[in-house]
């Protein structure tokens, strides 16, 4: 699967948001996109998801151009993405209406277990915590068996402890069900902890500044020398100081 160049501008006002982005993603890879806020990370994700179409350039997945959204590539939103009028089971089953009842039940049970929401099947999202809602969103996405999962700052609204736990959960889920994941974040640690490769975008109009390969196997020791080296490397590539 390869992503080809795209230049993009907006609403005739011609605000260049993304400038000639070239990126190849291979199957089952975990990519993190980092960059300053407002640089167009989310725009890039929306383009790849088919919610927007690029002004120029093209995006192809398995040799097939992306035209519009498709259940083979599911986008997980920052927050509020779960349907408040459906229970946990109803949300996970949302994309499964084509399956037979028994098959659907089976999938729902499987993914409820995968994201550890057992006992909450009949609960409505308003009674879930923020972390549970995001796990639910991931489960709903995985349930339709997509090739690619796009995550748009999925843990952005969570507190730092919950985020840490959620990262572990995401890695566990990813290792259980290998999918290609493209993960947008503005958190350097998150990127270094999760990704196979970290793609650093510049400020607007965004260009790819750097691609950093994280060559530590999971589970990663976040105080190992290699980890700190890579983290410092990434910080310097973004242009941030080492001390506060």
């Amino acid at each position: 699967m390869e992503h080809v160049s795209m230049v993009f501008d907006r609403d005739g006002k011609s605000v260049p948001v993304l400038d000639d982005i070239n990126l190849d993603v291979s199957e089952e890879e975990f990519i993190c996109l980092v960059g300053p806020s407002g640089c167009g990370k989310s725009t890039l994700l929306n383009l790849m998801g088919g919610f927007l179409s690029p002004t120029s350039g093209s995006i192809t997945i398995d040799g097939e151009a992306v035209h519009g959204p498709d259940p083979r590539r599911i986008l997980v939103f920052q927050e509020r993405g779960v349907f408040p009028w459906l229970t946990v089971a109803g949300n996970i089953g949302f994309g499964l209406s084509k399956l037979s009842r028994a098959e659907r039940e089976e999938r729902i049970t499987h993914y409820v277990q995968l994201v550890r929401l057992q006992g909450f099947e009949q609960t409505y999202p308003s009674d879930l915590s923020g972390g549970m809602k995001q796990r639910l969103q991931v489960a709903r996405a995985l349930a339709v068996n997509p090739d690619i999962l796009y995550l748009d700052e999925p843990f952005g609204a969570l507190d730092s402890v919950t985020r840490l736990i959620m990262r572990g959960e995401l890695l566990r889920i990813w290792q259980a069900e290998r999918r290609t994941i493209i993960f947008v974040t503005h958190d350097i640690d998150e990127a270094v902890q999760l990704a196979d490769r970290v793609v650093v975008l510049s400020s607007r109009p965004a260009k790819i500044e750097n691609i950093l390969t994280i060559d530590i196997p999971h589970p990663r020791n976040i105080s190992s020398r290699r980890y700190l080296e890579l983290r410092d490397d990434l910080l310097s590539k973004i242009g941030l100081a080492y001390t506060v």
């Binding site: 998801g49 919610f51 519009g68 959204p69 498709d70 259940p71 590539r73 599911i74 986008l75 939103f77 509020r80 993405g81 349907f83 949302f94 994309g95 339709v144």
Partner: peptide
């Protein structure tokens, strides 16, 4: 209707 719901609906085909 929040745009997110509409997008999710489109995403799931």
């Amino acid at each position: 209707i929040p745009a997110v719901y509409i997008n999710v609906g489109r995403n799931f085909g």
